[in-house]
Design a protein around this nucleic acid. Structure first.
Lengths: 139, 139
DNA sequence: TTCAAAATCATACTTTCGGGTGATTCCTGA
DNA sequence: TCAGGAATCACCCGAAAGTATGATTTTGAA
């Protein structure tokens, strides 16, 4: 951002400097003035476009990255382990597969899920995933 | 987009026209040429920014709205009815609820789902939703 | 018109989920 | 030290989901 503005300022300065340096009056008068104005306009339209692109690109890069809603997680009192289970559920794993990944029994996974459903106020895993994503608890 | 370009072109034309009209040579020579060039640069930088904003705004408005991947749907030979079921599954509905919404029996819903799982190459509804979303079959 | 795909439904069976209850261990903050 | 939350596990039961197979009807394209 700062760099962009700097480059823009420098371009302006360089242009003015070059005009001075080459005694542009003589040079310019060999071209038609319309052409000269047109060139300046073109160059600075380009610069404007470039600057605009730089500026908007930054906002684009800032928004997409996932930002977990930790306040909601705290508010809903969802524990670490429950969140882990939730993420695996969202990946489409079965309770058995989740249990194997976390090195616990299926019963444990089911207990975590029960608590999750209660906290999220849902009845099924698909709803839990849906809600968790809308609340940005998971990606 | 077309309008934006049109306005840009018109601005250029108007500028040139005005220069002619006011016999700009005399006018301009009363200002220093640096100032004149600077003004032109400023105006067209602004125009460039404006055009850039218009153009990127369009891409911003066009990208967020969901764009269904119809090629994938055709490629996977997923039928209309199957897609409907898929959407309802993604909303966290049970087979019973889906059946009621579509006025068919649970058996029918299950049949559609079986076909879907085969086409999407998954085993469970949560996986189907996951995959369908990543393929942009559904929102 | 004919053929294939799509949509519908059924029956039967297996697996997975989810609910309920209760127990143990560990850790932390009052 | 004591209460409470978190994590762990078990057992049972019923509901939901998924698999397999087969059948009928509708529909659209060749």
């Amino acid at each position: 951002m700062k760099k962009t503005i700097l480059i823009y300022g420098l371009s302006l300065a360089v242009l003015v400097f070059l005009l001075e340096y080459f005694e542009y009056r003589y040079f310019v008068h060999e071209l038609s003035t319309e052409v000269f104005v047109f060139l300046i306009a073109l160059i600075f339209t380009g610069l404007g476009l470039w600057v605009g692109k730089k500026l908007t690109n930054q906002t684009k890069i800032e928004s997409p990255p996932f930002e977990q809603n930790e306040k909601a997680i705290r508010y809903l009192k969802i524990s670490e382990r429950e969140l882990e289970v939730l993420e695996l559920v969202a990946q489409g794993l079965s309770n058995k597969q989740i249990s194997d990944k976390l090195f616990v029994s299926v019963n444990t996974t089911k207990t975590h899920l029960s608590h999750l459903y209660e906290k999220l106020d849902v009845k099924r895993r698909t709803q839990a995933v849906e809600k968790a994503k809308s609340l940005k608890l998971i990606e």
